[in-house]
Simulated scan of single mutants.
Amino acid sequence: MKTVLFSIYALLFFFNANGQTKNDVLFQAKIENRNWDHLYIKDTDYNTVQIIDINNAGFFKDTLSVQDGLYLLFDGTEYFKIYLKKGYDLQVTMDANNFRETIQYTGIGSDVNNFLAKESAIEVDYDYGKISAIKKSKKIDKIIAEKENASIKRLKANTTFDQDFIALELSAYKSHTDELKKYFGELREIN
């Protein structure tokens, strides 16, 4: 009888743990030189969705109950984009003093998140000064379109990416392009 009861409990535990994996995101990290004792997960409007405590060794592990989509991780100093989807089992390592160069994801969901990390580095290094020096709006629009097309090409080169992720990124590229055109159009009018 004890063996049967133990087997039932073991099966219930297994199914419960398995259900969490499919309906939640398992997320863990090792952060060297952490900025804060917490890591914040924010939606794209910068509203805090979840706060994760980081231990003194810079490690955390948590189960996140979030909707599939793009989020921002905030370590107290820097923001970086992350894509979370139910069923992901994601691990990240980074050095907060040099996170763009050291951030590395492994596990389920690492492919799209490593892509986002690389795209973030490209965006930070982009020379926006060359756009602000241009006086003609058609030339500005052309350079901004070339930037967007290069991003789309890099995204679509990854044929194994989740289609929902691709759709979100394409929408984000479009919004970013529209914002750049508006900003540089207004800047040109001021000058």
Rank of each mutant, 00 (worst) to 15 (best):
T159D: 05
Y9T: 10
K181S: 05
Q104F: 05
V4G: 01
I108A: 04
D162K: 02
A172C: 04
D75Q: 12
V92H: 01
N55F: 05
K138Y: 10
N158P: 04
I152W: 07
Y88D: 07
I52T: 06
T77R: 15
T102L: 00
I108W: 01
E148F: 01
I144V: 15
N35E: 10
K182P: 01
Q28H: 12
A17M: 11
K153S: 13
D178F: 07
F115K: 04
T63R: 03
D43M: 06
V92A: 07
K174A: 15
Y79R: 09
K135E: 07
S151E: 12
N56K: 14
A10M: 11
F6M: 08
E119M: 12
K22F: 12
T159K: 14
D127R: 02
I134E: 08
T160A: 14
G19M: 04
D162S: 04
G19S: 08
N114D: 14
K153G: 04
Q104P: 00
S65T: 14
I51V: 15
K135R: 13
A17D: 03
S110R: 03
F59W: 11
L39Q: 00
A57N: 12
I144Q: 05
K30P: 00
H38E: 15
N23I: 02
L116R: 04
I41M: 05
Q163C: 00
I8A: 12
V66E: 03
F13Q: 07
E148S: 10
K42P: 00
K156A: 05
D178N: 09
S137W: 05
H38G: 01
A29R: 03
A145T: 07
L90Y: 02
F13L: 15
E186S: 11
F165K: 01
K61I: 06
D89W: 02
I152R: 11
T159A: 12
K86S: 12
L187I: 08
T3Q: 09
A172G: 04
N97T: 09
K85E: 10
F13D: 01
Q91V: 06
A17S: 12
A150W: 00
N113A: 09
R34H: 12
R34M: 13
E32Q: 12
Q104K: 13
H176D: 11
L11K: 08
K22H: 01
L5S: 04
W36S: 14
Q163H: 10
K147I: 05
S110F: 11
D68W: 02
D37V: 03
S151G: 12
H176Y: 13
F99R: 01
N33S: 10
D68E: 15
G69K: 07
Y128C: 04
L170S: 10
I51C: 05
T48A: 05
L26W: 05
E189R: 13
E148R: 10
Y126K: 11
S7H: 00
F99E: 06
I54H: 05
F14N: 01
A150P: 01
N18H: 11
I108C: 00
D37F: 02
Y83E: 06
V4C: 08
D111E: 14
K85W: 10
L72I: 09
N56Y: 06
F27E: 03
S175V: 07
S171E: 07
A167S: 06
K139F: 08
S137I: 11
S65N: 14
D162H: 02
D43H: 07
I51Y: 04
